[in-house]
Design a protein around this nucleic acid. Structure first.
Lengths: 225, 225
DNA sequence: CGGACGATTCGGCGGTCGCCTAACTGACGC
DNA sequence: GCGTCAGTTAGGCGACCGCCGAATCGTCCG
């Protein structure tokens, strides 16, 4: 049992509990949650969630902001989000059975459009990536890359991409419901926040699902969704 | 505690033990190991390693081949290798103190050149990536991509890149010792196996370290290492 | 001030998990 | 056939871990 192994195991251990994993998946929406919200979501007591959050924050997977009597936690950054996505994508495909009307509509909304940490996913996200590919804005021939046309399109749209060291401009992310790639990375994040800002999509309370108001059409791309 | 959370936790749990993590890190060399070799490496008994391997194979992280009285295991594929790399790269930087002469030379060899699953890493890997960048063979402006010059260079060198669905041609991988990216993906793997085949580098028994015989010069790139 | 509320600390219970030794199975080779 | 060697099964021990209820701390607000 090597020192490196012990370190790796330490990181994995943070996600190796059902409650903590549930918390991290919820946090994939990119927002900050309070401890009580997470306790309710994960169906455990407040003391229990408190300990889990201590562990996750202490381990560097989450960061926290204390405001008055509230404790807000969120994922530490894009890299940790990608890690969780990566692990979740590897997991065997779940074949969940929706057993009520509300569950069905909830699942459908989730499949139609949602956020994936800080970018767009679901049918919407995949359709957007497809439309961009068709228009020659992104190029998949060697990995994935933004073309000069893509850069011009972004500028024209008024989307400001926040370039941060160590984060690729474009990255493909396997869509959990569609099983096909959608657009992540700095450009994916910029497009998502732009769409939210412009009101093209909006959060449906209580989850990662999004309400769609035009969306792909609003981006000036012809493909329907 | 959601069903998705339980699934994610299940995967993480496989790496959440020091012994299993050590095994997976060793398997990052891309080769197949026997159970007894791994038991010795991880400093546990054979029955113990046997159970761990059952768990890892059953979970789909490893695959096994039975030959006579031997059980060979290796990582299931590039995606699982990338996952482990990703987690390991996130781990806090270790500041290991080498406390013997042999440990020092071992560490130095490891830092100089080694394999990272199926591609080249260490000073050599980073230098190769740098040289390729300088020569315009790969382009980093948007993520990472192989340029037309790069494709021509590979053909000229006689390197056959095995294209497999779902695996990017080029991928950057953060070097653990250098803290700078080196080249992974299908091209990275092809270059590594080519170099081994041509005898430009060779395995030093007992680890992932490589003996260098020319290397970057052999690739026809001017930059020294 | 005093009640309400979010969050934390403490103590303890119960289940899981990693490890070992001892004994067994099955393949190899003289 | 008979040691030898790789790997497995069985049983049991001890540590760790996730969980909770009860009590406490600190902030907010009427």
């Amino acid at each position: 049992m090597s020192a490196e192994g012990e370190e790796l195991a330490g990181w994995a251990r943070m996600l190796a509990d059902g409650t903590r994993a549930t918390v991290c998946l919820a946090l994939l929406d990119g927002r900050a949650w309070t401890a009580t919200e997470l306790a309710k979501l994960a169906k455990v007591s407040r003391p229990t969630i408190s300990e889990h959050l201590n562990l996750l924050v202490g381990g560097g997977l989450l960061t926290e902001v204390r405001q008055g009597r509230h404790r807000y936690v969120k994922l530490a950054g894009p890299d940790t989000a990608e890690l969780i996505e990566g692990l979740a994508a590897l997991a065997p495909r779940r074949t969940e059975v929706a057993n009520s009307l509300s569950a069905v509509s909830k699942r459908d909304a989730f499949a139609r459009a949602r956020t994936c940490y800080d970018h767009l996913a679901g049918k919407l996200g995949v359709a957007l990536a497809d439309a961009m590919t068709e228009r020659g804005l992104i190029d998949w021939s060697d990995g994935i890359a933004l073309t000069p046309e893509g850069q011009a399109w972004l500028e024209n749209l008024g989307v400001k991409v926040e370039v941060r060291r160590g984060r690729p401009a474009v990255r493909s992310c396997l869509d959990v419901t569609e099983r096909r790639p959608h657009l992540a990375g700095a450009v994916g994040a910029a497009l998502c926040s732009h769409a939210l800002q412009q009101g093209w999509v909006s959060h449906i309370p209580g989850g990662r699902a999004l309400k769609v108001n035009g969306a792909v059409q609003a981006f000036g791309l012809s493909s329907g969704v």
